[in-house]
Design a protein around this nucleic acid. Sequence first.
DNA 1: CGTCTATTGAACGAATGAGTCCAATACCTT
DNA 2: AAGGTATTGGACTCATTCGTTCAATAGACG
Lengths: 234, 234
Amino acid sequence: MTATTTSAAPPRGRIDKRAAILGAALRTFVQDGYGLARVERIAELAGVAKPTVYNHFGDKETLFRAVILDGAQRTSDQIVAALETLPDDGADLAGALARVAQKVIDCQLGEEGWSLQRLMYAEAARFPDLFDDALRRGGVRVHNALAGRLARLSNRGHLHLADPDVAAGHLLALVSGDLPVLSALGTRKVAPDDLRRAIAAGVDTFMRAFASGPGPSAQPVAGRRTRPATGPPR
Amino acid sequence: MTATTTSAAPPRGRIDKRAAILGAALRTFVQDGYGLARVERIAELAGVAKPTVYNHFGDKETLFRAVILDGAQRTSDQIVAALETLPDDGADLAGALARVAQKVIDCQLGEEGWSLQRLMYAEAARFPDLFDDALRRGGVRVHNALAGRLARLSNRGHLHLADPDVAAGHLLALVSGDLPVLSALGTRKVAPDDLRRAIAAGVDTFMRAFASGPGPSAQPVAGRRTRPATGPPR
DNA sequence: CGTCTATTGAACGAATGAGTCCAATACCTT
DNA sequence: AAGGTATTGGACTCATTCGTTCAATAGACG
């Protein structure tokens, strides 16, 4: 019946439904939170019928988990790639750090980055194991990549790091500490100038603390807890 | 367990229902998120009838806003009070900073602190204005209190700060940057030793950057920190 | 060309939860 | 002691949404 005359119908064929669903789900979950997100809306946004969603992922919770893990993977891939661009020679170290920090933060500020972060904060209480998984897939890789990079710089004498792991954490904290406020938890677009200033200030403090100063004052850490420093002294 | 003794019938009288509701609401919202939190459950947890909740606060959203603002106020009161204990003389500055940081973080790690933070992250997309209000009531006051304290130390020569505002942000970032990971976004109890170590490391980096002689680059941050009041995007 | 699988639209059942109404009751004030 | 007010429990309305079912269809493939 209705021998529908071919055209005017959206292409029903098998495209990449799965990816479309994941994307739509991310947007929806982010906007409404897990509880209020409607599966039907996700389907609609993905240009897909609701049963198709249930065909691919069993139920809402499974879909949610897939969204988080998939996103964490992709975002951290981007960030790690950005970190690769940090040169090993110490030329204009501050500038190089600022540039790489800018890239990293751009990844985090992209639609996906903040959205994911907010989602994880939001639902951490309900899906504690999920956060652990995402951290393993995301944060840890970023942290290690940066720590490795910094260790190299330290080995070559361009930085004085007792512990590259700690330094990596501190650098990340310094350059991105203002982000939540600047972006109002990701709900506001950050003025590029504000961001640049924040990054510059963070890198500046980092350099003050860890750059091999021209002077003899390579002050060793006072009252340091014994922590296996993966980075040997200069 | 409500403190009241006696018989099977819970004391029906007018006690501090409002506070009880706010507390129960915080716990519930935190656990389930705004969308999935059930008002009936809040009432039950507060030892109160559901209509009473609606008598005090008009509806779910109003209740939520009250929870956030009230919590932000109280938490930041605590933190500001803790900051007052930072001495102005430079004796054992690192130790003093670590102690005050410990207090501040304790406030943030308490049931209320993390819960609130997670809640705001979670629902920032749906209640953007609410976050601004909470920030004004909470974060800004903490930041200013710390900046004032640091400025004093700087004036007396115990620190070398080009911009106490920036330094305050950096100190907070350094000592609490590891918190999300350590506590798994507030879902895991942080080992006191790990926390102490993280704080000590943060303070140590801060001291390296700002305690010794005037660093190589003492560039004061150019622009004043202005609040983009719902400014035009891009 | 004929078959098979993924997809579609639409509707359905069941459950859930916001917000309201009301008569009964406990506390506070005068 | 009397009267007013806040509170209570529970039932009720109404809307929403998860997850499912089913016949019809579009493209893939031998």
